[in-house]
C-alpha cells in the first residue's frame, strides 16, 4: 500500500503488491475483465449491483446506489467506477483466525450464557456484526457481537442447543480458556447518516445480542430519533437481559423496549407474532424508519416481508439472516 505510483498511470487498481493499470475511459469492471479476472457482472449499468467490489477508497459516484452499510464498508459498483487515482482494492482473503481469552461467563437465562472475550490481537468490528467461533472439530459457528469496540471486551450471547457441539463447548468453557475466532462479518450495523431517523430493531432469542450492540452504538454516536427495540421469544421466561435493557431505556429517553411473546404474556409483554408486533410498534413512522432484523433466516424473511408490505422501503431493511446450521 505504501509504494509510490507513476502519476502518468494514476488510474490503477492496487491489489496488495499487484496492480492493473486502467486504460483511458475504462471502468474498473472493464479493467478487471481485460486483465483476465473472473469478476461478476450483470447489467453493466449500475442497476443490478451484481458487479459489487470492495476497496479502501472507491469513487463516491460508484457507491450512490448502494445501501449506507455497504457504502460504509467501501463496497462499490465496478461497472460505474472510473477512478481518477489509485484504487486500493480490498483483500479477498477471509480474515485469519485469532485467539481470544474468556474473561467472564454469566448465565442470562436457563439456556443463554454471556461470554466476554479479550482478543489476543486487534479485532476490528462494528457493533451488530458477527464473528465465527472455530471449534477443534473443524465445526464453525457464527455469533453476533453485543459489545462496542470501546468496551474492550467482545460480548457474545450463546443459546445452548440440545446436542449442539459448539454451543455446548461454549457453555462449558471456564474463565481463562482460549477460543479461536475470526471476523467480523455482516451488513447489519448502524450508520450515522441521519441522527433523527427512527430506528426499529427486531430480533428473537439471542438475536438480541446484535440489537443491543446496534442500539448502544447509535446512542453512542448521538442518535436523537426514536430507537424501538422489539425482543421476541416463545414465552416471557425466554426473554433475557430485561433489567439491563430497562435501565438503558431509562438512561436514554429516545430508546424504548418492547418485549413480545407468542404465549402467556404478562402485563409487561405484548402477545402476538413478532412481525405483526414490529409493524404496530413502528406505527405511523414506519415509512421513514430504518429496520435492523436479527434471527434465523425464516424469521428474518417473514419480518422483512411484513415490514416491506406495510410500507417500509426495501433499502432501509438491514438483516443478516442466520441459517439454522450456522447459529446454534
Amino acid at each position: 500500500m505504501s509504494q509510490s505510483l507513476d502519476p502518468a498511470q494514476a488510474a490503477t487498481l492496487v491489489f496488495g503488491d499487484q496492480r492493473i493499470d486502467l486504460l483511458e475511459g475504462e471502468s474498473v469492471l472493464e479493467g478487471l475483465e481485460r486483465a483476465g479476472v473472473d469478476a461478476p457482472a450483470g447489467c453493466r449499468a449500475g442497476t443490478c449491483c451484481k458487479c459489487m467490489q470492495q476497496a479502501d477508497n472507491p469513487p463516491p459516484e460508484s457507491q450512490r446506489q448502494l445501501r449506507p452499510t455497504l457504502r460504509a464498508q467501501g463496497f462499490f459498483l465496478a461497472c460505474q467506477a472510473y477512478p481518477k487515482e489509485p484504487l486500493y482494492m480490498a483483500s479477498t482473503e477471509p480474515p485469519a483466525p485469532i485467539s481470544a481469552r474468556v474473561v467472564s461467563v454469566e448465565s442470562l437465562s436457563s439456556d443463554v450464557r454471556r461470554l466476554r472475550l479479550r482478543p489476543a490481537q486487534q479485532f476490528t468490528y462494528r457493533p451488530g456484526q458477527y464473528l465465527d467461533v472455530l471449534h477443534s472439530s473443524a465445526a464453525v459457528r457464527s455469533y453476533s457481537i453485543a459489545s462496542l469496540p470501546s468496551d474492550g471486551l467482545l460480548e457474545l450471547h450463546v443459546r445452548r442447543i440440545e446436542g449442539g457441539l459448539v454451543s455446548g463447548y461454549l457453555h462449558e468453557l471456564e474463565v481463562g480458556a482460549d477460543v479461536s475466532i475470526r471476523g467480523a462479518f455482516g451488513q447489519c450495523f448502524h450508520v450515522a447518516d441521519d441522527p433523527d431517523k427512527p430506528l426499529l430493531l427486531v430480533g428473537a432469542g439471542t438475536g438480541l445480542a446484535p440489537l443491543l450492540g446496534i442500539a448502544r452504538d447509535a446512542l453512542d454516536q448521538g442518535h436523537r430519533g426514536a430507537i424501538r427495540l422489539v425482543h421476541g421469544g416463545l414465552q416471557p421466561d425466554r426473554l433475557y437481559l430485561r433489567d439491563e435493557l430497562a435501565q438503558l431505556a431509562e438512561t436514554w429517553p429516545q430508546l424504548s423496549i418492547h418485549p413480545c411473546v407468542l404465549r402467556d404474556a404478562g402485563a409487561s409483554e405484548r402477545q402476538g407474532a413478532l412481525d405483526q408486533v414490529a409493524v404496530q410498534v413502528a406505527g405511523s413512522t414506519l415509512g421513514e424508519t430504518r429496520a435492523f432484523l436479527c434471527g434465523d433466516s425464516d424469521l428474518v424473511r417473514i419480518l422483512q416481508r411484513s415490514l416491506f408490505l406495510a410500507g417500509m422501503s426495501s433499502a432501509e431493511i438491514l438483516a443478516d439472516p442466520f441459517d439454522a446450521a450456522l447459529s446454534p
Binding site: 447489467c43 449499468a45 442497476t47 443490478c48
Partner: peptide
C-alpha cells in the same frame, strides 16, 4: 428487487442490458 429494478430499467429504455 435488484433484478426487478434492472428489468424495469431495461423495458423503459434505461441503462440496463
Amino acid at each position: 428487487i435488484a433484478k426487478q429494478k434492472a428489468f424495469l430499467t431495461y423495458v423503459t429504455g434505461g441503462p440496463a442490458e
